[in-house]
């Protein structure tokens, strides 16, 4: 086993055992942060691998959260009697995936949008979605939807539900680990190699015969599906969805988590989101609104000393030899 794999294994093992040493309330909070970690991994895939800096990635997180809420609260026309968590999870992946496929078709094919133009378009779409959600009564308007049920095992929405902190935490961690493993396997394959090549030099990749627009579209859609899954898991835990989950605020937050963690390393982005969300709760208690200043200072320091991310820097040091950004 390589040293890098050993470090990764220890991080996951540490996260598995962590709730045994902390209180129930903190476990529940960390379980929510795990969904942020999953969300950050989805952005790391789009931004760190494909070079798609999305300023509006919460669009997909929010779509997933709302899909979950509508399905499990029986608000989907024709499916009122079938408030299944499984249906919610499926829709939470499918709707953002299809949305990203459609967006990708318009944004990447033809002349294609790149860099800041793509980022700004995504920002505009997220803001638009936030406004639309605020104004749609079916989606709960400004107040959002309250009373999203927890994940339930039964196909009809009944059966054992995920209520206790410890099982909730481990299920969330299990999902995050499964997604991490799946993405690592994808990135180690020739498809993953092509995705990294898009980030490095997409024009050159085209001259090698690859359909760059299709690689970007499929990768972006996969990232959107994972973000949607994160949104759904968040909604089922939090019991509440609001327009804030689909707009600019959360889009900016996930960018900061991913940048500080390390956009080119999935585990770094994931762990960065956990660490920063936890730090936020601690520092917000100590500093109040000045917490944002502390976050800004952290971001500046990270950019100065860990260009590829703070957590990625540490993980790389521990793995020895490899510089951040390498798989």
């Amino acid at each position: 086993m390589s040293r890098k794999r050993l470090v990764q294994g220890l991080v996951w093992l540490g996260l598995t055992l962590l709730p045994l040493f902390i209180g129930e309330w903190q476990t529940l909070q960390l379980a929510q942060f795990l969904t942020y970690g999953l969300f950050a991994m989805s952005l790391a895939l789009a931004w760190g691998r494909l070079g798609l800096l999305s300023f509006g990635h919460a669009l997909f997180f929010g779509l997933g959260a709302y899909a979950m809420a509508l399905a499990t609260m029986g608000r989907l026309p024709g499916l009122e009697a079938f408030p299944s968590s499984w249906l919610g999870l499926a829709l939470a992946c499918l709707v953002p995936w299809a949305t990203a496929q459609l967006l990708g078709f318009f944004l990447f094919h033809g002349r294609g949008l790149r860099g800041a133009y793509f980022g700004i378009t995504m920002l505009a779409l997220a803001v638009l979605a936030e406004r639309l959600t605020q104004g749609t009564a079916w989606l709960g308007g400004l107040n959002g939807l309250i009373g999203v049920p927890p994940l339930a095992l039964g196909l009809d929405g009944g059966g054992p539900a995920l209520l206790d902190p410890l099982p909730t935490y481990w299920v969330m961690l299990g999902v995050a680990f499964a997604v991490f493993l799946g993405l690592e396997m994808l990135l180690a394959s020739s498809r993953g190699l092509a995705m990294t090549a898009v980030r490095e030099n997409e024009d050159r990749l085209g001259f090698l015969g690859y359909d760059v627009a299709a690689i970007k579209r499929h990768g972006f859609a996969l990232s959107a599906a994972i973000a949607g899954l994160a949104g759904a898991l968040f909604a089922s835990q939090f019991g509440f969805v609001s327009p804030k989950l689909i707009g600019f605020g959360l889009s900016a937050e996930v960018l900061i988590w991913t940048a500080l963690g390390g956009r080119e390393m999935l585990l770094a982005a994931f762990f960065g989101a956990l660490l920063l969300s936890w730090t936020e709760t601690v520092l917000a208690g100590l500093l109040g609104a000045y917490w944002l200043l502390a976050l800004a200072a952290l971001l500046v320091l990270s950019v100065l000393f860990f260009e590829r991310g703070f957590v990625a820097g540490i993980l790389t040091l521990l793995s020895r030899g490899r510089r951040p950004g390498r798989r």
Binding site: A194, T196, R199, L205, F207
Partner: peptide
């Protein structure tokens, strides 16, 4: 290309693997 068109983060072997897996190979 006139200036080397490579993928800086990929290894030499990965460049060949990328080409070999291409639809143009």
């Amino acid at each position: 290309l006139q200036t080397p068109g490579l993928f800086a983060a990929l290894t030499v072997a990965e460049h060949l693997a990328l080409a070999a897996a291409s639809p143009a190979a």
